[in-house]
Design a protein around this nucleic acid. Structure first.
Length: 300
RNA sequence: GGCGCUAUAGCCAAGUGGUAAGGCCAAGGUCUGCAAAACCUUUAUCCCCCGGUUCAAAUCCGGGUGGCGCCU
């Protein structure tokens, strides 16, 4: 039996419920893999599982960061990996459940992320260069030190161009030479629930309506009042940025809601694209997304 | 009924004689420390219809149809 179960897929596809059912059956715990669930105070807009929904199953990596923090994959890996490992040591099948593919991969594969952390100072400097001389110039800079990485990156993809530059500057080594081979850390299978697109979009829209009923606006206001401003990383979350901006610009609730729906649909599409390439990935139809199916896949 | 304006992709829209900008939406994709982020690609054989002028018309002319506005 594979040792790790990953429940991934698009937002609003029913991952949480399936993972909880599996956890109950397997008598194990869930490691959330979601870049926004990590923040305390972001509950409604992230559709954070309620105590009720968790059904007594222990969920890790939820509420582990302050909304003022800048949480990153690396932080995630540092916190989550030991938990996965300890569950394995205890003879359990850890369930990684979430929609942030990047986070999931950091657990599944041994990657050192170039062995360099983010360096604000270096980033700021390159951002300034970007502002003054443009992205083509920045791309040229990278070409000079790491042609291979430059080749792979579009000049407009300035975030990654800067990261490559950052890695070179700090380590003196090329990012292209530090790409870790994607070596799996464990035996695992991935499972996702595949709704017809129309249906998934309908679920998303319904969910957004519910968020507003539950008081998304109030949640954003509370965060804002407690000093979480739009510069904070968590305010990049869908639902949060639209409400914060919308309220400032005097948009109607309908307008804000529609924008959130659209952005969430686009996000779901990106997730689907990302998970298409996942290894050992079983795409389940909604009818087939049952504990029994998952367990039988695990046993194969 | 008369007069004026208008008609370009799902939406907004440029183009006013030389072979269809751009934006939005949508779809597809990328992804190794900001990932619910960031980035890339694609999308009108054709400009409401009919006829005319011209080497050449989305662009000019005539007629028709739809919309908008004003007048009676």
């Amino acid at each position: 039996m594979p040792k790790v179960l990953v429940v991934c897929g698009a937002t609003a596809s029913g991952k949480t419920a399936l993972a909880v059912e599996c956890a109950k059956k397997l008598n194990t715990e869930i490691v959330s893999a979601d870049s926004l669930l990590v923040y305390r105070g972001l509950n409604i807009g992230t559709a954070k599982p309620s105590i009720d929904e968790m059904q007594g199953i222990k969920h890790h990596l939820i509420d582990v960061a302050s909304p003022l923090d800048n949480f990153s994959v690396s932080d995630y890996e540092k916190l989550a990996l030991p938990i996965v490992e300890s569950l394995l040591d205890a003879g359990k099948t850890p369930i990684i459940c979430g929609g942030t593919g990047f986070y999931i991969n950091s657990l599944l594969y041994k990657s050192q992320f170039g062995n360099v952390g983010a360096n604000e100072e270096v980033r700021l400097r390159y951002e300034k260069i970007l502002e003054e001389k443009g992205c083509e110039y920045l791309h040229e800079l990278l070409k000079n030190v790491d042609a291979e990485s430059a080749e792979k990156l579009h000049p407009n993809d300035t975030k990654r161009v800067i990261r490559a530059l950052e890695i070179f500057e700090i380590t003196g080594k090329k990012k292209s030479q530090q790409q870790d081979a994607p070596i799996p850390r464990f035996d695992f299978i991935c499972v996702s629930i595949d709704y017809p697109r129309e249906e998934l979009y309908a679920r998303i829209e319904k969910r957004v309506d519910i968020m507003f009923e539950q008081g998304l606006k109030e949640e954003v206001e509370e965060l804002t009042n407690s000093g979480v401003c739009s510069d904070c990383q968590c305010m990049q979350g869908i639902g949060y940025k639209e409400v914060a901006e919308g309220l400032q610009n005097g948009c109607s609730e309908e307008e804000i809601k529609e924008l959130i729906k659209k952005n969430t649909r686009n996000y779901a599409k990106r997730q689907i694209t990302f998970f298409k390439r996942a290894q050992n990935h079983h795409v389940l139809s909604p009818e087939n997304a049952t504990v029994e199916t998952v367990l039988s896949l695990l046993n194969n």
